[in-house]
Nucleic acid binder design. Structure first.
Lengths: 143, 143
DNA sequence: ATGAATGCAAATTATTTGCACATCA
DNA sequence: TGATGTGCAAATAATTTGCATTCAT
C-alpha cells in the first residue's frame, strides 16, 4: 500500500481500509488528503471543488466510510444543513457560529451519564446523542 | 375569524396569525388541524397524505410558520432525516427510538446555563442548542 | 378591490444508484 | 484475473420558487 505523505489521519484511514480488505485507490487517497487537511468544517461540495477529477459519488462514498470509522463527524447546522468535520475524538459536541459558520469542538462537556440516567428513567436505553451548540464566535460578536 | 373546533394549539396558531395580519385561510386551518392533532413525530409527507387537497408547498409554508412561532419543532433523526413534533414548551429535547422512530420529550434536562458558561469559556456567546438523544424505547428493548 | 395565499409544476439541492469501464491486489 | 471501486449520468428525495388564479378582508 502506498502511504500518502505525512498526514496521520490519512494514514489511519488508509491503513484501516487496507486491514479491512478495502482497496487503497488513487481517488481514495486524494479524498483522504483533501478531507484530513481540513482545519474546520467542510461540505461535500468543498471537497469536490478541490478535486475536480474525482466524481461526486466517490466523495460521498468515501466520506461515508470515514463517518463509519469515526474519523469524520457530521455537523447539523441550525437551518438543517449538513457539514462535516474531522473528528479528533470518539464523541464530542460542536460550537457552531451562526454568523460565519465556523465550527469548534465544545470542550469539557460530558452528558453521557446524566443522559443515560434520564433516558432510563423514561424507559429508554440510551444509544447515542447529538448536541449542537449555536452562538456567536468572538470575531462575530465584534461585528 | 372562524375558529376551528376545539384544538387549543390550532386556536393559538390561528389567532396569532390573525393578530399578525396573516389570513386565516381554509388550507391553513386544515394544515393546523392535521398538525396539532399529531400525538407523535410526523413528516411533511404525513400531513400531505392526510390532506390530499392541500398543496405540498402550502404544507411546507405553514409548518415553517409554526416553527417560527415555536408551536412545532424540528427533530433531526440519527440518519439526518427530518421530522416534526408539536411543541409543548419553548425549548426541550427529544428521545428518539432508533428502532420504531417514536419520539418522546426528554424530561427534566436543562443544560442551558452550563452550556452558556462552557461556550463563554471558549469565547462564544450562546444563542441556542439542539440535543437529540437516541436509544431503544421500552417496547423495542423487548423486541 | 386588492394584496396575500394557494396549487401546481418546474427548479433547486443533496444524495444515491445503475452500469460500463478502469484498476488494485 | 477478477472482484472492487470509479466516474458518469440518471434517479430519488426533500424543499423552494415562479406564477397565474383564488380568496380573505
Amino acid at each position: 500500500m502506498a502511504t500518502a505523505q505525512g498526514n496521520p489521519l490519512t494514514d489511519i484511514f488508509l491503513s484501516r481500509l487496507d486491514e479491512g480488505g478495502y482497496r487503497v485507490t488513487e481517488s481514495r487517497q486524494e479524498v483522504a488528503l483533501a478531507v484530513f487537511r481540513q482545519q474546520d468544517h467542510f461540505s461535500v461540495e468543498d471537497i469536490c471543488r478541490l478535486l475536480p477529477t474525482v466524481g461526486r459519488a466517490t466523495v460521498f462514498r468515501n466520506i461515508k466510510l470515514m463517518l463509519e470509522m469515526n474519523l469524520v463527524c457530521r455537523v447539523v447546522l441550525e437551518d438543517g444543513g449538513v457539514q462535516y468535520q474531522v473528528a479528533e475524538r470518539r464523541h464530542h459536541h460542536h460550537l457552531v457560529c451562526t454568523r460565519c459558520g465556523r465550527t469548534t469542538d465544545l470542550l469539557g462537556c460530558d452528558f453521557e451519564d446524566e443522559l443515560r440516567a434520564k433516558a432510563k428513567a423514561q424507559g429508554m436505553l440510551l444509544e447515542s446523542h447529538r448536541l449542537e451548540v449555536y452562538g456567536r464566535c468572538t470575531e462575530c460578536q465584534a461585528a
